[in-house]
Every structure is written in structure tokens, then in C-alpha cells.
């Protein structure tokens, strides 16, 4: 199977691997999994006082497409508001990386992970109010 250059680049040089402090008030953590293939993905965002996402990190145990999808999402969300980040669609990820049809579910995982991270951040800020 031929993979796109962008996919291979994200897989071989993943951006933003790592962790942020999940207990911090300005960090939202999304943890999602795809049990059918045993993948697990953690995606975190750190939101600045101006409401923009200033940092994003991920850790993914899964196939190359899952790693590339989460790497791409962390790159995309930086500098965006959470409302903007929430509009990222798995189809955009799949298109950008030219994921083969059997790997589309990896982009679904990444979309669900960013949504979960945003939901976690919102729940935290709501509690703090």
C-alpha cells in the first residue's frame, strides 16, 4: 500500500509528542480508544488566557495512521480557539494525509480525541466559575 508523503512525514517525525499536566486548570485531556484494533490515543490542549490553544501534546499507541492523525491534529489546533478546534472533521484529517479507506477510522479517533479534550477543558472551566 502506498502512503502519502505527508502521512509518512508525520509518522516518522511526529510533532508534539508528550504530556501536559492533566490536573492543571488550563489543560484539557482527551483519552479515546478503538477497541476493535486496540489503539489508544491521548490528546491534550493547553488554553491561554486569551482563549487560544497555546500548546497541544499527544501520545498514541496504535498504527502509523493513528500516530500521524494525532500528530496532525496537535499541529492544527495550536493558535486556534477551542470553538474553531472543535470544527475539525475526521474527513479533513483523512484528506490531508490521504489515508487509505481502511485507515479512515484512525482519523475518527483523532477527531474524537480533540473533541474529548475540549469537553474536558470546558468541564473544568465551568467548575471553576
Amino acid at each position: 500500500m502506498a502512503y502519502s508523503e505527508k502521512l509518512i512525514d508525520h509518522y516518522e517525525n511526529p510533532r508534539n509528542i508528550g504530556s501536559l499536566d492533566k490536573n492543571s486548570e488550563d489543560v484539557g485531556t482527551g483519552l479515546v480508544g478503538a477497541p476493535a484494533c486496540g489503539d489508544v490515543m491521548k490528546l491534550q490542549i493547553k488554553v491561554g488566557a486569551d482563549g487560544l490553544i497555546e500548546d497541544a501534546k499527544f501520545k498514541t499507541f496504535g498504527c502509523g495512521s493513528a500516530i500521524a492523525s494525532s500528530s496532525l491534529v496537535t499541529e492544527w489546533v495550536k493558535g486556534k480557539t477551542i470553538d474553531e478546534a472543535e470544527t475539525i472533521k475526521n474527513t479533513d484529517i483523512a484528506k490531508h494525509l490521504a489515508l487509505p479507506p481502511v485507515k479512515i477510522h484512525c482519523s475518527v479517533l483523532a477527531e474524537d480525541a480533540i473533541k474529548a479534550a475540549i469537553a474536558d477543558y470546558r468541564a473544568k472551566t465551568k467548575k471553576a466559575e
Partner: peptide, 25 residues
């Protein structure tokens, strides 16, 4: 059971899986 392409968000289960995989790594 979640089929292909379906995701779950059970934090307890996924945290355990994540930590185990980190240990293996």
C-alpha cells in the same frame, strides 16, 4: 460491542491500557 472504527472513552479502561503500553515501551 463497538465494531471497526467505533471509539470508546471509558477513562478507567483507557488509562490502564495507556499506562501498560507505556510500561512496555
Amino acid at each position: 460491542m463497538p465494531g471497526d472504527g467505533k471509539t470508546i472513552d471509558d477513562p478507567e479502561l483507557l488509562m490502564e491500557a495507556m499506562e501498560a503500553r507505556e510500561e512496555l515501551h
